[in-house]
Design a binder for these strands. Structure first.
Lengths: 344, 344
DNA sequence: TTGTTTTACTAAAACCATTTAGTAAAGATT
DNA sequence: AATCTTTACTAAATGGTTTTAGTAAAACAA
């Protein structure tokens, strides 16, 4: 902790009261000009910085918010955190980031720690496991402003910020259809969060609109919570898919990790993308154009998700007017590259 | 901010003094068993959590540390942050991450904010621009424990954690030489931090040991601080290199961003890697094997750098014994893939 | 019985900034 | 001259925890 001078030090040095010094520094009308100047001069000279902790204690506000994400070590998450940090820094709020590592119990532990640490609000992107939002609802009831971002749930009523998953998935699938693909597989995470079903629904709607019959054998949901799970299961699933009766000619993957891992595994298994099988998926990797082949992606405005979520939270913290909760859905962007096109 | 019950609430409810309650909860010998049980029961029932801010104020410790990095939105940085977070969470410290965005002025702003926010210690990976360490030295003098990680400097004496850049660069260059490459270019950042020169020296030493004459025309240092700088300058540099009299048959890139961007640009310019030019570089991307071609890398133990740095900092915070400062250099790992080998 | 020790508690200060309530002195008003 | 207002300040409380110093009562020893 810093050992700067305090108001008291200034007061004693200048033979004033602590309250006078405090007021002088906040330019109160109650203090005369000469005194103000004297105090200001002394404060500057001795590099006075108000003790943030004392102020927090007094004001009952810490000007810090908690952020809970699955893992900081995830490209897409890091981009959103960048957006959160940008907005918060601009508005003089500090962020305390904690990682749930996709474990519900750890998520609860993070939240408890943050809450007792005195955050003014909470920004959370729940784990894939999370189905119980009661503890969040309780915190909310006891006065903690909460905003959900990226991964949403209907079980809690609050501000929410994410992308239009349905539309993004619809567009991805439509793009494959437009490029002549008919047997389109879909690989998704088995989370109960709405993003998974929304992307699945978008996929089905695009098929339906194109009058392509839905084939459940081409759709796989599975546990992607750990890297090991993902790699091993995904390899099995891809092997199975590619040896099935109705071998897919294209794949639409629903998450960042799934998309890039899928490409890596297809390469490893010796399949030529897109000749043997085309691929498009949700992903924000900035290496999409350097991949083999360059990967077509559904890009999410990650930075904006983060900064908007932060904005919603700070407005919730400031406003005690009961503005109704809203859900903001941003548009995704389709980035067509080689992995999803027959020619090129 | 949370509105939990306080010691005082418990005290009033049980008709005890605040100090008795405080002592009962810390299991002090001064409190009788019956009272302890009564207090503990009440505290549990009403979900008492000590107010972290009040405790910080009293103890003069916040159990939080500041972390300053160039950008959270950088794969390698995020991996190190994961390591820092892991160690700190384990030891009940909170981390407050701030981004310098490679700007020296912003770095100073971050540090000031963190310092006045009452951090117990600082973990910093300076910007490429940073050459002046006086402000850090001043903070150190006024009692703030500081640990440098990843990007080091001789200008400040403290604990430091990074990789053995010289050896990593030497091994990368040696690998290219062993694979028959002779005209090896080297692309590096123009930072004044030691990592750049160390990697450059490793490159030169490997050439010298192999009796390959050093050719300054094959070596390029340039400003990589922004993505725009990097992309545009790198493209120019690669164009120039590939059209020079002594066209390189291989390239060794010194940073994560340089390596992956270099590959992307070579692809874009139509050069076949490794046939036209081989490539190996420092990089921690988990997409190395999905790149076109799969990218040979010098991998840094990023997680360990982070967790070790955190460990050093926390030991500095606890220990007031003046253990001498040490610099820990971890070994890099060479990961040979297609981009650096003639046959495959 | 008197004096000493132990047990089990409490009052109050400390950490530092903010803020409410109040005071003394100067200046203005009638 | 007497009253009101304004100016420029201060004392003290507040926030919640920890800790120092202290007290009353019980237990024990002589």
């Amino acid at each position: 902790m810093n050992n700067n001078i305090t108001l008291r030090d200034i007061a004693e040095a200048l033979k004033l009261s602590v309250s006078t010094v405090s007021r002088a520094l906040t330019d109160s009308y109650q203090i005369g000009d000469k005194t103000k100047k004297k105090v200001l001069a002394y404060a500057n000279e001795h590099n006075y910085v108000p003790n943030r902790i004392a102020r927090s204690l007094k004001e009952g506000k810490s000007r810090s918010i908690g952020v809970v994400v699955c893992s900081i070590d995830n490209n897409f998450v890091a981009q959103m955190l960048d957006g959160i940090d940008h907005y918060c820094t601009e508005h003089q709020y500090q962020i305390i980031i904690m990682q749930s590592k996709e474990l519900f119990e750890q998520e609860k532990a993070c939240i408890n720690l943050l809450y007792s640490g005195g955050i003014d609000g909470l920004l959370i992107s729940p784990t894939y496991q999370t189905t119980d939002f009661d503890y969040l609802i309780n915190l909310q009831k006891s006065g903690l402003p909460i905003v959900l971002f990226d991964r949403l749930s209907d079980k809690i009523d609050t501000h929410k910020v994410a992308v239009d998953n349905f539309k993004g998935a619809y567009n991805a699938t439509l793009h494959l259809i437009d490029n002549g693909y008919k047997n389109i597989a879909h690989i998704n995470s088995d989370t109960k969060l709405s993003m998974a079903t929304e992307r699945f629904e978008g996929y089905k709607k695009a098929l339906a609109d194109a009058k392509i019959p839905y084939n459940a054998n081409l759709v796989q949901f599975f546990d992607t919570t750990t890297a090991d799970n993902l790699n091993q299961n995904l390899e099995k699933i891809l092997q199975a898919l590619m040896h099935a009766d109705t071998k897919p000619d294209a794949i639409f993957t629903a998450t960042d990790q799934l998309s890039t891992r899928c490409l890596a595994i297809l390469n490893k298994l010796g399949y030529l993308v897109p000749t043997d099988v085309a691929l498009i998926g949700f992903s924000n990797t900035d290496l999409a154009d350097a991949l083999n082949p360059s990967l077509s992606t559904i890009y999410q405005p990650s930075f904006e998700i983060g900064s908007l979520a932060a904005k919603q939270l700070l407005s919730l913290i400031d406003d005690k007017t009961n503005t109704p909760f809203e859900t903001i859905l941003l548009d995704t962007q389709i980035q067509v590259r080689s992995s999803s096109q027959k020619s090129k």
